[in-house]
């Protein structure tokens, strides 16, 4: 039978006490983390739900801004004649169709074989200085579409003239082919289309300003 008293019990090493401050720091941090963790978890779930894919293929059900940042046309029109009888280049405008409806019409770019548009612009008048508010739909110059597999969008390019507008061509795009960001389509001249190149930009609705600016570059 052994008889160990408190005096004989093995003593912890001298450095053992040094761990106590570390334990207290962890306890205090852990306590704060414990009482706030439910709230933070709720927030992080919300953030995940709102997370938007900023690259790659489009996500079904997500709404996107779509606009053509550049459209290039062949030097001659559908009849193989110079645009505007050789006096000037074509005045290019495009319309975007989704589900058979025009969902966006661009402003006209005068005398251009390569027309470009920015997806972001604000036209301010004097009256705007008197407190008129500007909505994001006014600021973003693009069509809004919702991606569903197997659907198509169509871009119709026109040469705007005073007398009558001439068709430059139409191009149908499978939405499955589109990616977030820049999408370029090089086209051959046909009897019904004189479009040489279309650069289409696709931006997810709800992304932040930095991401939008990067995708628009």
């Amino acid at each position: 039978m052994t008889d160990i008293s408190d005096f004989d019990a093995p003593k912890p090493p001298a450095w053992f006490g040094a761990v106590i401050p570390l334990i207290l720091v962890l306890l205090a941090s852990g306590f704060y983390w414990f009482i706030t963790t439910d709230k933070e978890n709720g927030e992080s779930v919300d953030t995940l739900n709102r997370k938007i894919k900023l690259s790659g293929r489009l996500s079904p059900g997500q709404t996107y801004y779509v606009f053509a940042s550049e459209v290039e046309v062949y030097p001659t029109n559908l009849k193989n004649e110079s645009w505007d009888q050789g006096k000037k280049g074509p005045d290019i405008r495009y319309r975007l169709f989704w589900k058979g409806n025009a969902v966006f019409e661009s402003i006209t770019k005068d005398d251009s074989l390569i027309a470009d548009w920015s997806g972001l612009s604000i036209e301010l008048n004097w009256k705007d200085l008197l407190g008129k508010s500007v909505s994001s739909d006014d600021a973003i110059k693009a069509g809004r579409i919702r991606f569903e597999k197997g659907e198509k969008i169509e871009i119709a390019v026109e040469d705007v003239d005073v007398a009558s507008d001439d068709d430059v061509g139409r191009h149908e795009i499978e939405m499955d082919e589109l990616s977030v960001g820049k999408n370029e389509f090089k086209l051959k001249k046909t009897e019904t289309s004189a479009i040489r190149r279309i650069t289409l930009r696709v931006l997810p609705v709800g992304s932040n300003i930095e991401d939008l600016a990067n995708i628009m570059k």
Partner: peptide, 28 residues
């Protein structure tokens, strides 16, 4: 030690971003 533990995990710095004259636009 307790104050340090709380100080490390508690809110330390709050940033209020502004974009100057464009603040209203960024807000939209």
């Amino acid at each position: 030690s307790l104050l340090l533990g709380l100080g490390l995990i508690g809110p330390t710095l709050t940033i209020f971003p502004k974009a100057g004259d464009l603040t209203w636009f960024i807000k939209i």
